[in-house]
Amino acid sequence: MSINLPDKVKNLPLTPGIYLMKDSQNQILYVGKAKNLKNRVQSYFRNSKHHSPKIKKLVKHLRDFDYILTDTEFEAFMLECQLIQNMKPLYNRMMKSPQSFIYISINLTGKYRKIDIAFNPIEKDGKVYFGPFTSRSNVEGALRGLKECFKLNCSNPNGTNSACLNYSLGSCLGRCLGGPAEQQYNDILDRFIGFLKGTDRSILEDMNQMMLNASEAFDFETASAYRDQIQTVSSLLNKEKVIEFTEESHNIVAIERLTDSTIKLFLIKRTEILFSHSYAAAGNIEEKIKTNILAYFKQDEANTDGDVSRHEIDAAHIIYRYLHSGSCSYLIISDNWLDPENHSTLDLALKNLLNNPQHFQPPIYHE
């Protein structure tokens, strides 16, 4: 029996959720999320001339779709992430590069060091790796900014003790000539490694001083270039914060208001929603929330700290963005609060979270 897709789309609700595109064999071709299901799914059937070739191909094979409603856009994001990981639909894989995670690699072996990007780190290969990062363009822009700022663009990296073309153009500090410039180059890379590890910010301090010097000399074009380079290099550290935060495996209570009379509770550990439930905003609900916190956040649970896997990265970014979006109020639960002797502290924190949500969004990290 043929399904009338336009009519089915018209009956979709204007609420958040997940849609699952299917072919004639009832196989899931694509999983997507939406803040507004009806508008999002309708977009596949109009303005086709603006669609990418992959979207056009998807629509051509589309014969039906299912959908799952969620209370919030955050839940739709998380459910989409989970379903894609479990189902691995064809078009989700086609629309996401297999090299979607990127690393910075610095070769520490041999006389001549090299900074580059990598997609698959290799253990014990003489290189140090940083990442993973999810945006190739951001990483490439940051490395380009670093090289331009500190004149690391040597076009003769193997060293023949003769000046390379970039040296004559002023974009190489002279590493190709050997001697002091070679040691200077290595020192800069050592400081950059310290920057990526979070132990040395002198790279940024020097870049800021270069920007200030250019500005004081009324060379505003150069100062603007330095400013852009500082932003791209700084973005590497910001990306790492998402990974660092996830590795710490916090116990997180997040509350989002659905309506004037309803709130949604999420209990989150690392990259997993352990529990979610809707409550009437009126009345004393602190005790109900506290009961769930004590049930799902265990003091004696196995330590889940450790490196964030590739499968967790997408969920980690979703959670991190959600906590900083202003859509919710959140609270990080200390392990000590789970001790019966400290339940009064937990009670007070929950009361503040529920009664003053707009003021109770403690920053996760301070700059």
Rank of each mutant, 00 (worst) to 15 (best):
P6K: 10
D7P: 11
K8S: 06
L12D: 11
P16C: 07
G17I: 00
A34Y: 00
K35H: 09
R46M: 12
S52C: 04
K56W: 07
V59K: 02
R63S: 05
F65E: 09
F65G: 00
M78V: 04
L83Q: 03
Q85C: 02
L90A: 04
N92L: 03
N92A: 00
M95V: 06
F101N: 07
F101D: 02
Y103R: 08
L108N: 14
G110R: 06
Y112K: 08
K114C: 11
K124A: 13
V128M: 03
F133K: 03
F133L: 06
T134C: 02
S137R: 01
E140I: 10
R144E: 08
L152N: 10
C164M: 12
S168K: 15
G170V: 13
R175L: 15
R175C: 15
C176A: 13
P180I: 12
I188T: 14
L196P: 14
L196W: 15
A217W: 09
A217H: 12
T222S: 09
Q229C: 09
S234W: 09
S235E: 11
K239V: 00
I243E: 06
H250K: 12
I263S: 03
I263A: 12
R270H: 03
L274T: 02
F275T: 00
A282Y: 08
I289T: 04
K290Q: 14
A295F: 07
T304L: 03
I318Y: 09
L323D: 01
C328S: 02
I332A: 01
D335V: 10
L346T: 01
P363I: 07
H366P: 00
